[in-house]
Design a protein around this nucleic acid. Structure first.
Lengths: 110, 110
DNA sequence: TTTATTTGTTATACTTTATATAATAAATAT
DNA sequence: ATATTTATTATATAAAGTATAACAAATAAA
């Protein structure tokens, strides 16, 4: 039986991996976390989360080829598995459903 | 400075407190968690979360009056503070924004 | 009027997530 | 060679999530 839910940072990371498409790896995810989610985390936190997600089967990773930039180690690129997509959607559906039942907190009421 | 984000269960509990209005307390929240969010947690987990949320200033609680039902101890009723509402909305806004950028995972694509 | 039952909260211990700092690795440029 | 850049790994600690058991207070009922 699969674990039913994911942590808050895990959810954001899954979302950003989808958004980053072919370029989702530790540092790019960290940058998006900052820019897209206004979330400041250290790179260690990101990799910890990625490892957890992989060991749960929600993402997979493989090493990218040589880079075009200055120098640096090869990237470990991440993509969502089918199971990762499912868990993401489920977590969204639950919340969308709850929000839809709370008009008094809706987006243009505060 | 206020803590910037809340955990996944904390978010659900905040949402349900809003939904339950005048009747949000440990056991009713637990029941809603099960029914509305398909989330099975023990009552200890719920109270732990509530205490955490209160100590962060996202909810406040006070004892309810005598109950109309069979027997039982008085309820500790919870409501959101202004700060609780803010943090809830913020967390929603971030995710709504991210989802809107991922048409390929949209609700009717899987 | 005390004892059983019901409804509810608290206490405690443990696991999993989240976090930061420091160490290490591998690539290019000089 | 060695310095610089880009990147991942290791390690330690704090915070969030979880389960079980103990406790408390109300009513019913003997």
């Amino acid at each position: 039986m699969e674990k039913k839910h994911i942590g808050e940072l895990e959810e954001l990371v899954l979302l950003l991996i989808v958004m980053l498409k072919e370029d989702a790896y530790g540092l790019s995810i960290r940058k998006s976390l900052q820019e897209q989610a206004n979330r400041t985390v250290t790179i260690g936190a990101v990799h910890g989360t990625l490892n957890r997600l992989e060991s749960k089967g929600f993402v997979e990773s493989n090493l990218g080829g040589a880079t075009e930039s200055r120098g640096g180690r090869r990237k470990r690129l991440f993509t969502l598995t089918a199971s990762g997509k499912k868990v993401l959607q489920k977590s969204r559906d639950v919340k969308v459903n709850l929000w839809s039942q709370i008009p008094e907190l809706s987006i243009n009421k505060i």
